[in-house]
Design a protein around this nucleic acid. Structure first.
Lengths: 132, 132
DNA sequence: CCATAATGTATACTGTACGTGTACATTAGA
DNA sequence: TCTAATGTACACGTACAGTATACATTATGG
């Protein structure tokens, strides 16, 4: 019997709403195809127990992802990952907003004392990962 | 008479709390030394009018930055930028959290349709900016 | 074919955070 | 010394996050 690495973990003391942490973490898996079309996510009640939140909180997260086109939710069958091309043409303002959020995030961790070389490393690492 | 580029702008419809947007935007300037020790920030009432929020909202933002050690707040004198080395040793968990938040942010904009090459460009650009 | 149980959905309720209104405390400068 | 400009304190309304509980739907076993 193999114990899987947990699908995601959240930090209830972080101030970031739990349902948003769930959305963000799952979306990473969806975008990177760690979760593929046809896969089934855990039932809301099970994931809720794993994370230590109420199942409605998980249901809220699933609904957000369903509205984004990632999931198909059906009673009794569960939450299934959909085929969903990344296309949907980018709102041009979206890229600019990304640039700003990125700078804000970096400033925040710089302010918190994370070493600049490490920040550079993370940025380059992620860029390289996207390239191939 | 020269019209300055505004110190910051916020988007009241973005869902992100206004005071947090103010904090994040100002911190970018503080970290990048667009705001230097000894500089005075606008009075809370003035910045509030510029941004279209209540002055207590600006005051809240100033207080957060004061708690982070960036500002010295005094009645009647205003909000002054402090000398504040970046050091304060990094909580090691902080770097890992940065890595995760970074991936989540990228997944979010990818999901929203921002082109991958553009994302890569932004990441590399920011990394290069930090290097020198 | 039906009964049942597993799943997501809907609604009401509580606590907390955000933003504002208003009064106050402090202090630089006339 | 007075005044006015500044940050501070606190109370309030509203919206949001999280939970409790009941419900609707449907795959599955008999």
């Amino acid at each position: 019997m193999t114990t899987q690495p947990p699908l995601l973990r959240i930090d209830l003391s972080s101030g970031v709403p739990a349902y948003r942490q769930i959305v963000d973490a799952l979306r990473v898996h969806l975008v990177n195809e760690g979760l593929r079309p046809g896969d089934l996510l855990p039932p809301v009640r099970q994931l809720a127990v794993d994370l230590g939140v109420h199942f409605n909180t998980v249901a809220d997260a699933y609904r957000v992802l369903a509205e984004e086109g990632w999931l198909d939710l059906r009673r009794r069958r569960g939450a299934m990952v959909l085929e969903r091309g990344m296309p949907r043409l980018a709102d041009p303002a979206r890229g600019e907003l990304f640039s700003r959020r990125l700078r804000e995030l970096v400033a925040e961790v710089q302010s918190a004392g994370v070493a600049v070389p490490q920040i550079i490393r993370e940025l380059r690492l992620l860029a390289a990962g996207l390239e191939k």
